[in-house]
Design a protein around this nucleic acid. Structure first.
Lengths: 127, 127
DNA sequence: AATGGTTATTTATTTGAAAATATAACGCTA
DNA sequence: TAGCGTTATATTTTCAAATAAATAACCATT
């Protein structure tokens, strides 16, 4: 079991932030989807970039909009290129604010972990 | 899709904290297992209380000890009651510190969410 | 009106993680 | 030494979640 060995990599804090009503609905998944939709202009292309099936992406987006009670993307089907999707103002704001909260919480978690270095990084030096 | 409806429940921030080396290894699962082992004195009983198979619990514990490079529980097999497991000093400290970090990070996340109420709680009043 | 690539939706198939099962060792007790 | 309930570990089975596949509607362009 290799107890008492030197560790390969330092211990870090990972934070998965999710916003919830009854159940969780807005997390890293929706957020990344929205970001990729902003880049590509399409749900399908966004799903492909994330190695995600279109169906799954579609469900995630529907659920988030339903729970948040706001339209996050504007969907158009048909037309020259078959259709497209673009972020609404609320969608763009959700992405920006979620990432901001996430970043701050992660930084805070990292600080907290350092304050307990003795427990989780026993072999490392106090700075 | 019910866009623009009143929401049933308020939006809250959920934080899943996990400590990682290369991969995650110490999260809510191990922590709860350790707490239940402390209460029951047995891996099997702890797993049962969590509706978890013994095998799964055993793997989680092994992995955490391996990654952390420390023994978290003392295991005894055989004997009057078949055997038992108890937390080591490091195991107890890990539980205490993990919960403390987790609580603080959650409180902080909750504050951050409030600061962005307009995006994620559009129909609610500013306090 | 036929084409092409999207959105929308249902249904069938796959897959991967957890559970269940099985087996053995351990060591106190009767 | 037989029994009991634990730890330890490998193997098989189950099941939910994700993917794949199938179908249709949409509509600018040709």
């Amino acid at each position: 079991m290799d107890i008492g060995q030197e560790r390969r990599t330092p211990v870090t804090a990972r934070v998965k932030l999710t916003l919830c009503t009854d159940d969780r609905f807005f997390g890293p998944g929706v957020c990344e989807l929205l970001e990729k939709i902003r880049e590509t202009g399409s749900i399908r292309a966004a799903a492909n970039r994330m190695d995600l099936s279109y169906t799954k992406a579609w469900k995630i987006l529907n659920r988030a909009e339903e729970e948040l009670g706001t339209s996050l993307i504007t969907r158009v089907s048909g037309g020259r290129n078959g259709g497209s999707s673009t972020l609404t103002e609320a969608g763009g704001r959700a992405v920006r604010d979620f990432r901001e909260i996430e970043t701050r919480v992660r930084e805070y978690a990292s600080e907290q972990l350092k304050a307990h270095y003795r427990t989780f990084m026993p072999e490392e030096q106090e700075k």
